[in-house]
Design a protein around this nucleic acid. Sequence first.
DNA 1: AGGCAGGCTTTTA
DNA 2: TAAAAGCCTGCC
Length: 272
Amino acid sequence: MILEFNDDLNLKKIADSGQCFRWEELEDGSFRVPHKDSCLIIRKLTDDTYELSCDEGGYQRIWKDYLDADTDYRSIRGRISKKKDPFLYAAAADQQGIRILKQDPWEALISFIISQNRNIPAIKRSIELLCEKAGKKRKDPLGRAYYSFPGPEAVRAMSDEDLAGCRLGYRDEYIKRTAAAVCDSSLDIKALTECSEEEAFDRLISLHGVGKKVASCVMLFGLHFINAFPVDVWVKRILENEYPSGYPMDDYAPYNGIYQQYMFAYYRKLNE
DNA sequence: AGGCAGGCTTTTA
DNA sequence: TAAAAGCCTGCC
């Protein structure tokens, strides 16, 4: 189908933003986007039209929500004052096109446990290995093979050898225990989306291997609490270097997560 | 209570 | 060799 889309949407920027790790750019500039049991091929045609491999029904049912299409990112960017906050203003201008995807919470949880203390290429590699070893082999809309993200049972059933083959290092124990916690319902993933922000945070950090940073990422990218504000090494530097007298977190509620993402992507680019 | 040091696997640059 | 979208334990 051809999709008319008049708000911010830059596929390349989203793919590089560090919020998702399995988007793949194809030769023609389109992107392969796996999500749950589905896979979308999406390509930009003009400023506000895109070619999608799904039909209208599939878009309404799956991808509209995944792309957070009902949120007006342009107006959220428009709330930033150039005068009061030139750094954030510059970041948002440069990173215009980023959206916060509504990813699968389980995938976000495992992905961000894997992410700790590693750079993005290494994260992508481990996740790809995990999918190859425990996911299901599927075909994308172009008929090419890819692997789905394995569910909790599939991860729990992995042999130590297969898990070690994902090059997770000390994190393999975290992954194993988290999969077990979800399987035996000591963590109810589905309930997380329905509880308060505070409650969701508390439940997440109670997991072995999940601290404040990873929990915040799961909240922002998996549970779509767009006010969650993950502080990693880059954001820490931003707060120290650009906001020595304090960051106006309260003024930016409830959009702190979106603004964090602009700053994160922008600052990384500046320091590459 | 809350902060700090050291260790942890592996990859990347 | 240092750093990487950190967390855990132990210590104060």
